[in-house]
Design a binder for these strands. Structure first.
Length: 423
RNA sequence: CGGGCUGUAGUAUACCGGCAGUAUACAUGCUUUGGGAGCAUGAGGACUGGGUUCAAUUCCCAGCAGCCCGACCA
């Protein structure tokens, strides 16, 4: 992508009325644009990041055998009345249309839709287990949207629903979902700071589980265990990686996994959660199946969510310096930021075309009449992990630098790929 | 939903009961190119409604919007 063609521009001024680091950097650098409180447009750069996150999630969720679908955002009133949540769920956005006076809701979650949907397809124990997921915008009437992408009124979410014959089968799936989730956050670059957190609400383990990323921008308070004696197999060994949510710390004052009593209080952002729904939604919608003996039984359900916008905001909160964002490679909008400082673009154009032909995602700052300082400042702000500079000083070579380092290297064009692919 | 603060140009801000100023971004021209460059010229502005007043962008009230704190958050 040639930067001269990018319609967005960076801004020097810090946006008024944006306190959070993620909103400030993402708006200044042209990743997002605010429409209203908690509602943002994803601009070309931001959209690329969102898609990267989405693809990582999609790829991993396949390991759970779930099939991707897309359910409507516009929901009929009746489905929400079946469960009573039309009246009890404060954050449900409800409205009546002007002409027909029909009443609808905008989907904040999809238990009320997916349960009657699957009733059309699940009849027998032979149809179970099965699972569906979607990546879709959700709507919630947050009383107080805040902190940029961290708490929005419209946001992209991956929601997965699993259907089982019995609780043992659900539990098995639930455990598998736990490890898939850990893998996802690892890939996105939040693994080191993300803790499997025990919260209230479960039954078979008496807990539900949240994935909480330690951050000063977080709204939640958790008590983390990073006991190095007990390393979680799925992680890279940053200790136990378990935490307890504040809401249950009094009943659960020690690490549920290793018994460590020295838990550390931290603020954290909830970026994912997993719930056992059991028959909470199969009952009102009569979602049943026939077992081997022809007996009618209720389908056992689980649900599993990940907030994509929130992940993007959390990454910016976690990885930045005073100059701008520092994207992890896996979700950066581009792999390399190529900057031309020479008066003529011949060599830089060749390098750009060469990289493109090798399938490397490159943002090429080909803008004329922009000073070196401004290009560097923009590059730091946008935060692509690798920067390549071509100037009169580089004499046919390319100066390369990681965003999070100060050391530069002069290399030949053929060696660029090594830097793109390696850490 | 309670409390507080704030609405001035695309953005960020200043002053003021009587001609609204600056920076940045934008347009044009020239100069400039290793850390947000310089000169010149140009275009662009007081959230909405009501009140007080000879006169309101300024003071008062209401609405709307935004931010912060709290409560809430499948």
């Amino acid at each position: 992508m040639k930067q001269s063609l990018l319609f967005t521009k960076t801004k020097k001024e810090i946006p008024k009325d944006e306190e959070s680091i993620n909103a400030r950097f993402l708006i200044r650098s042209g990743f997002i644009d605010k429409l209203m409180a908690g509602v943002y447009t994803f601009l070309p750069l931001g959209f690329r990041v969102l898609k990267k996150i989405e693809n990582i999630i999609r790829e991993e969720i396949k390991n759970l055998g779930a099939q991707e679908i897309l359910m409507p955002s516009l929901h009929p009133k009746q489905n929400w009345q079946e469960t009573g949540r039309w009246d009890t769920l404060d954050s449900l956005i409800k409205f009546a249309t002007f002409y027909t006076k029909n009443e609808y809701a905008l989907g904040p979650t999809h238990e009320e839709i997916v349960s009657p949907l699957m009733k059309n397809y699940i009849f027998s124990y032979k149809d179970l287990p099965t699972a569906v997921f979607q990546i879709q915008n959700k709507f919630r009437d947050e009383k107080r949207a805040k902190s940029g992408l961290l708490r929005g009124r419209e946001f992209l979410m991956k929601d997965l629903y699993s259907f089982h014959k019995n609780e043992e089968e659900l539990k098995e799936y639930y455990e598998k979902a736990k490890s898939v989730y850990a893998k996802i956050f690892e890939k996105i670059g939040l693994g080191d700071k993300t803790f499997l957190t025990f919260a209230s609400g479960g039954t078979f383990s008496k807990y539900s589980h949240e994935f909480q990323t330690v951050s000063s921008a977080g709204e939640d308070v958790i008590y983390v265990c990073d006991n190095p004696e007990r390393k979680r197999s799925a992680s890279h060994g940053a200790g136990c990686k378990i935490a307890v949510n504040k809401e249950i710390i009094n009943e659960q004052p020690e690490c549920p996994q290793c018994g460590n009593k020295n838990l550390r209080e931290e603020k954290a952002i909830e970026i994912g959660n997993i719930f056992e729904l059991k028959t909470k939604y199969s009952t009102p919608f009569n979602l049943n199946y026939k077992d081997e003996n022809g007996l009618e039984k209720e389908v056992i359900m689980g649900c599993y969510g990940i907030g994509l916008n929130r992940i993007m905001g959390t990454v910016v909160e976690t990885y930045h310096d005073e100059k701008g964002i520092i994207w992890p490679k896996s979700i950066a909008p581009f792999s390399i930021h190529l900057i031309n400082l020479k008066p003529d673009a011949d060599f830089a154009d060749r390098v750009y075309n060469n990289l493109q032909s090798r399938g490397i995602e490159v943002l090429y700052d080909d803008r004329k009449d922009i000073t070196a300082g401004e290009k560097f400042a923009d590059s730091d702000l946008i935060g692509i992990p690798l920067r390549a500079v071509i100037s009169d000083k580089t004499e046919g070579k390319i100066e390369i630098k990681n965003r999070n380092e100060t050391e530069t290297k002069l290399i030949n064009i053929d060696d660029i790929e090594k830097f793109v692919n390696n850490k």
